[in-house]
Design a protein around this nucleic acid. Sequence first.
RNA 1: GCCCGAAUGGCGGAACAGGUAGACGCAAGGGACUUAAAAUCCCUCGGUGGCAACACCGUGCCGGUUCGAUUCCGGCUUCGGGCACCA
Length: 800
Amino acid sequence: MSRYDFKNVEKKWRKRWEEKPVQQNTKDKPKYYCLDMFPYPSGSALHVGHWRGYVLSDVLSRHKVLQGFHVLHPMGWDAFGLAAENNAIKQKKHPSVSVAENITTMKRQLMEMGTIYDWDFEINTTDPAYYKWTQWVFARMFEHGLAYEQEMPLNWCPTCKVVLANEEAVGGVCERCKNPATKKNLRQWMLKITRYGERLLNDLGKLDWPEKVKKMQTDWIGKSHGAEIDFTVLGESDSIKAFTTRPDTLCGATFMVLAPEHPLVEKLTAPEYKDEVDAYVQRAASRSSVDRMADKEKTGVFIGRYAENPITKEKMPIWVADYVLYDYGTGAIMCVPGHDERDFAFAEKFGLPIVQVISTCALVGHKLKEAYTGDGILVNSGEFNGLTVDEAKKAIGAFLEKLGRGKATVNYKLRDWVFSRQRYWGEPIPIVHCEACGPVVVPDAELPIVLPDIKSYEPTDTGESPLAKIEEWVNTPCPKCKQPAKRETNTMPQWAGSSWYFLRYPDINNNDALASPEALRDWLPVDYYVGGIEHAVLHLLYARFYTKFLYDIGAVTFEEPFTTLFNIGMINYKGKKMSKGEGYGVSPDNVLPKHGCDALRLYEMFIAPPEIDCEWDDSGIEGVSRFLNKLWRLAESPKLIAPTNGLIRLRHKMVRDISTRLENLSLNTVVSGFMEHTNTLQTLAAEGIDRETIETLAVLLAPFAPHIAEEIWERMGNTDSVFAQKWPEYDPEMLKTDTIELVMQVNGKLRGHVTVPANAEKDFVLEEARKALASRLDGAEIIKSVYVPGRIINFVIKGQ
RNA sequence: GCCCGAAUGGCGGAACAGGUAGACGCAAGGGACUUAAAAUCCCUCGGUGGCAACACCGUGCCGGUUCGAUUCCGGCUUCGGGCACCA
């Protein structure tokens, strides 16, 4: 009996699979498209944290092969973008060089993991043949008015020297480097994702995605119902539009606030207040959003004008204050200090009137100590007194509409997507700026616009792309009027290539379309998508947006790209997040020589439920290594006997356990299930085990530990691959036993076990139990006897 | 601040649908085999009491529903995550 020689066995099977892939005769089988979020080769190597998702998708893919599906399980490289460029700068290498090196390493690692990626379908987003189509999608968006230029204050990361999309500047902090973002006025390309806000929200309901991710996208889109109210400015022709979710509180609106960036601030400010207002506006503009949010005290200044409350006709002083955001709603608000915490704080600080218009019994007649934001009945609201909040929303809405001073509206937090980047390493935006024609899209025949190969690609401080310096590339005739014109020098963001890549895999060499209609029909949408939670509102929102756009222009026939999404948990190491950037973490390259790839695969699953974040434990992998050795001793040269009833039942139980746990994606208990069954079989090994049990074990194990499974399968005398088999089924009838053991309780406490025939009647079972518990039940009054067939008996007694 | 999720031995975790809490593994301790080591095998391993059979307590805390609660309900505490002046 020898120790399991994982080195040679794994080498042998990887070579076999290379020569003869595990998927055969796939023509008539149903399709299954199982996809990993493709990695960006920004660091030199993958760590064991990345493996967790790749192992999961590999297990599912191999399982589907055994279940008779034709599986597409491809891999590629999201190789453009800031991370890859920063990494290249750090290494003092050209991005194309460092990316190619990183891809080589990562691909080797993925192959050593025994994954069934089909490398004939490899994608690289930096390949001009690929990004031709990334540019093509942009061109279509431009034609449909979804891509537009705008100069506006944008999130700017001074460290990365690049503008950030809203999704990349959550909390005012750069998503990549975590430094505070500032505002910078720049002309940028924007994508009108807001046009899709409602559909992006509604279609979440169709998706088999984790609730958490759906909720994050819902919150990000941030739909809220309310009213837009038009306030007359006294003595002026201009009026101020304000969005509110609480039109019911209109009679409590005692002042108004404009955002500092609001154009009416300059227009309306009374001359004697001008200096003070200008100073305030300038100060607000110079501060980062992080600073502005950090303010505990409300700030603001009166602009010397008044608006009129359309119901009460009271004069409402107009202020400017930076707690009002210019890019949400209308950038102006009606302030109801009685029923809004922020307005209350502002009113208290500046001595503005606070009027209560919503009341509960408890609140009537008391001066408000804080804003009351709850439900109640209208007071101090004239003809609307006595209405509930909900009734008043409708009634006041109708009143305003009749007056022509308001309408019901919906607002979203979702903003348009800042799409251009001031960096070298990205897809050139296929636009030419012509003095006569304006921005002109590059004709499809001229795509791809190839990224020029230049030496000096470092970012600039000015917000200008490094490409702007390459005159011979920048200067080009206008595609429309043929006059001298200039190319757009900004590039696309990291997300451009990854927003549609899943469409390309089935048809990677297509030069006439992003993919043929047949390939899309045969394979899309993705059935199962595996990746980390960090993309909940970035990549996943952008990919949904792209897909919906491509659906609208007839390029695809489905509206949602990913039917099912699985969020793989993160693996920490010594309490810290592993990173490929700093090389911190555990490399599979160090684990594989000692334990082998099957052991690492099993440990990735065994470590914790796959969706949970967990901690890498260096000694934990010993357990699965021991298991593989135990299994090998069991299956290497077993004493084969004819199947006994016990063995048959055991086999069916094994199939049931592994299958149901796998279906529930409880991969940690799948592994423990293999351990349990192997332990049980070990105790029977001396007596002998039947061939079918061992072969079934090999097939069940194949998706999880494919190398040892193939080896065992072959040692049993089989000449075909274990993956040419069918996933075993179990017969519930075979799991039944003649007798069953029941738990006995007295007053809910465990008091013993009793074995009865499986088909025994209730009365018989209770009588047996009563006899078995005689010493406890004698002399006591049995108030109730509970019998749950197959499970438990409980006597409720009085006395004792 | 608002929203969401979680809490089980020294550790990772298990418990189908309300029915034996702690599967499986790690670590630890003890033992067998061995000249020795590696490997393997066996035993112990939530707490308290007891020589023991056994008894009582025990799934973050308090309460409720139930014959029976880790599981359901109400109220807290702590930790993690998301958003954050979104009108």
